[in-house]
Amino acid sequence: SASLEDVKTAVLGLLVILQTKLYTLPASHATRVYEMLVSHIQLHYKHSYTLPIASSIRLQAFDFLLLLRADSLHRLGLPNKDGVVRFSPYCVCDYMEPERGSEKKTSGPLSPPTGPPGPAPAGPAVRLGSVPYSLLFRVLLQCLKQESDWKVLKLVLGRLPESLRYKVLIFTSPCSVDQLCSALCSMLSGPKTLERLRGAPEGF
C-alpha cells in the first residue's frame, strides 16, 4: 500500500504534465506521457489490482482522460474550469503507423480551432504528436469488463456518452463501437458483474 501511494503521486504528476505538454513542443512528450498513463491502467486490469488506493488511481486517471476532446481538424483539447475547450495546435487524435513515428509534419500553421486557440506554431513546419484515442478506448473496454470498484465504473459510464459525442475521437483511430456495445450488453446481462463490484448501489 505504501508503494502504491508513491505510484499514485507519480500518476497525478503525469496527469499534470500531460495537461501542460498537450499545448507545448515537442509534441512527442505529450504522446509519451499519454502512453505511460494508459499502459499503467492496463496493468491494473492485467494484474487485478483491487486495493482501494489502486481504485483511486484509476478513478483520477479516467476522470482526466475522459475529458479529452477533439475538433473537426482532429486536434485534441481539454475543457477549462468554465467548460470551454482549448484545442492544441500540436497534438492530434489520429492513429499513425509505428514506422512513421509518433509525430508527423505539417507544412505550416493550422487553421484556427473551433475553441480558444493555443499558442501559434513558431516555425514554418510543426511536428504534430499522435495521441490516438484507441489506446484509451481499449482500456475503457477492459474497465467495462473487469472493473471491481463501483465508483470507477460509475465515472466511466457517466463520462462515456459525452466523449462519444466527439465522433472524430472514435473514427480517426481503430476504435470498435461494436466491441463497446458488446461490453456494455455483457456488463448488464452477465451474472458476474454484481459479484465483482464493490460498493454498487442496492438494486443495481
Score class of each variant (00 low, 15 high):
Glu103Met: 14
Gln19Phe: 04
Ser173Glu: 05
His29Met: 07
Pro191Lys: 10
Ser3Pro: 06
Leu188Ala: 08
Thr24Asn: 11
Lys151Gly: 11
Leu51Pro: 01
Ser28Ile: 10
Arg196Thr: 07
Tyr23His: 07
Leu184Lys: 00
Ile17Gln: 02
Pro112His: 15
Val139Cys: 15
Gln19Tyr: 05
Ser56Asn: 11
Asp149Gln: 06
Lys154Asp: 08
Leu73Arg: 08
Cys181Arg: 01
Cys185Lys: 03
Ser3Val: 07
Val85Tyr: 15
Leu110Gln: 15
Gly101Asn: 13
Gly158Asp: 14
Pro116Arg: 13
Arg32Gly: 02
Cys143Gln: 01
Leu144Arg: 00
Asp82Gly: 08
Asp82Val: 11
His29Phe: 06
Pro201Leu: 04
Lys104Trp: 15
Thr114Gly: 14
Tyr95Cys: 10
Cys175Glu: 05
Thr172Ala: 07
Ser130Arg: 11
Asn80Trp: 11
Ile170Lys: 03
Met36Ala: 09
Leu140Gly: 01
Leu144Asn: 00
Ala54Tyr: 04
Gly77Leu: 03
Arg198Cys: 11
Pro52Arg: 05
Gln19Thr: 07
Arg86Tyr: 07
Ser56Cys: 11
Leu135Met: 15
Ile53Arg: 01
Ser88Trp: 01
His44Ser: 01
Val11His: 03
Ile17Phe: 03
Cys181Thr: 09
Ala183Asp: 07
Lys151Asn: 10
Glu35Asp: 08
Tyr23Phe: 09
Lys104Pro: 14
Leu22Pro: 01
Thr9Leu: 07
Cys93Ile: 05
Gln142Ile: 08
Ile53His: 03
Thr106Gln: 12
Lys154Glu: 09
Leu51Trp: 04
Lys46Ile: 12
Asp94Phe: 02
Tyr90Ala: 06
Cys93Gln: 03
Ser56Phe: 13
Pro109Val: 13
Gln19Lys: 12
Glu5Phe: 05
Asp82Gln: 14
Glu202Phe: 09
Tyr45Cys: 00
Gly83Thr: 04
Leu194Val: 15
Leu78Thr: 06
Lys46Pro: 02
Ser55Phe: 03
Met96Arg: 10
Asp6His: 04
Gly190Ile: 08
Cys175Arg: 04
Ser130Ala: 15
Cys175Ser: 05
Gln146Cys: 12
Lys104Ile: 12
Glu35Met: 12
Asp82Tyr: 11
Ile41Cys: 04
Thr20Asp: 08
Phe171Gln: 10
Thr172Ile: 01
Arg69Leu: 01
Gln19Met: 05
Ser111Cys: 15
